[in-house]
Design a protein around this nucleic acid. Sequence first.
DNA 1: GTCTATACTCCGATAGAC
DNA 2: GTCTATCGGAGTATAGAC
Lengths: 216, 216
Amino acid sequence: MYYSPLMPAPSTKDRIITAAQELFGEQGYPATSLREITARADVNLAAVNYHFGSKENLLHEIVRHCLKPLNEERMRGLDQLEIASRESGTPLALRDVIHAFLEPAVRLFSSTIKEALPCMMARLHHELTPGLEDLMNQIISPVVARFVASVQLTLPEHKPKEIILRGHFMMGSLLHLMDTSPDFMYKLSGGLVDLNDSEYLLDQLVDFCTAGFRNA
Amino acid sequence: MYYSPLMPAPSTKDRIITAAQELFGEQGYPATSLREITARADVNLAAVNYHFGSKENLLHEIVRHCLKPLNEERMRGLDQLEIASRESGTPLALRDVIHAFLEPAVRLFSSTIKEALPCMMARLHHELTPGLEDLMNQIISPVVARFVASVQLTLPEHKPKEIILRGHFMMGSLLHLMDTSPDFMYKLSGGLVDLNDSEYLLDQLVDFCTAGFRNA
DNA sequence: GTCTATACTCCGATAGAC
DNA sequence: GTCTATCGGAGTATAGAC
């Protein structure tokens, strides 16, 4: 790798973020030490506390940084669906709405950084310290509201309460999927289910959730 | 509390298990220190390593101890459903099968020890060290196999692969539900969804999953 | 067999020199 | 901004008391 004025060498802060992202994803947040992170990033131990204040604050910054583009893409997808529906005069399809919510996450899950980022995000939902809980709520709330509104358009007779709860079920399925190692699923299914086949997974998950939303 | 020959005072080992169960549920496994556990159990710090070998081994023992009765109850429920179906000549109903799998877990979730045990079990799925992964696989494999077989009876045209994957989705929804604090859901839903209403939750979850299984 | 006291290593965090 | 030194607390191991 060569660096230039156009492609500068990563700063200390960026190197820390990159290393932490990888290690949190591989081992989880609590099991990863600052000494591992700073060793991989080739920076001094104290640099983390200087740039981020604490280990937990480093995590928060990474979460914000990762979830923002994902949720923006979800928003764009839902916008486009509603625009296309209005222009063509065809009603919004429930399956498309659910696909627009799940597809960006599953694609991220199956990307080259699979080992790190998405697993980390899935685990975060289950390592919620009080501070993280507020952060997640703040990040996810607008997307959930936007998603629920779109689903409501396709299921006008459903109560908002039911749609929100089913959205929570859907999120659970997605997170559990992202947090399960292919090896574990291989053993559990006797070799039948391959978690690396993300196209199939997305298709099945969208089917499952669409049917689940419809029946209420 | 009075102790007698019939109701002996809890042993050191039992006091450790009780204290650890509570604390793991309240704070999660990694955030709980052995010093907290031994202080609450009023035993010496070294007693944990003497009786269990390590902190992780203590966790494994607790997991085994908690999941065994839950899974046995699931097995009994599925057995009874199949017996009743055979005796009455009515075909097995998919919704009943799913209910038999989910109900014991949701009931445990809503019991008095809600603050501790079920949250801990849900979190465990996302704090999988290699050793824990093997243990979980060993514990839930027979129940999954039993459940998949029952579902297959009600949906003979579905591929086993699809049933297993949908079972995984269902498990994700259940675990996410058990691991979400009522406060978090209250904020996220604008006060609409109350996670303390476990009867409603079970009903909705069973509906969601039944519809999801059927459509494949 | 049980339990205790204690020590060892590693962790996150911080103060202060440069 | 960066580095060294150091702190209190974590999990663990073990020698020895009962």
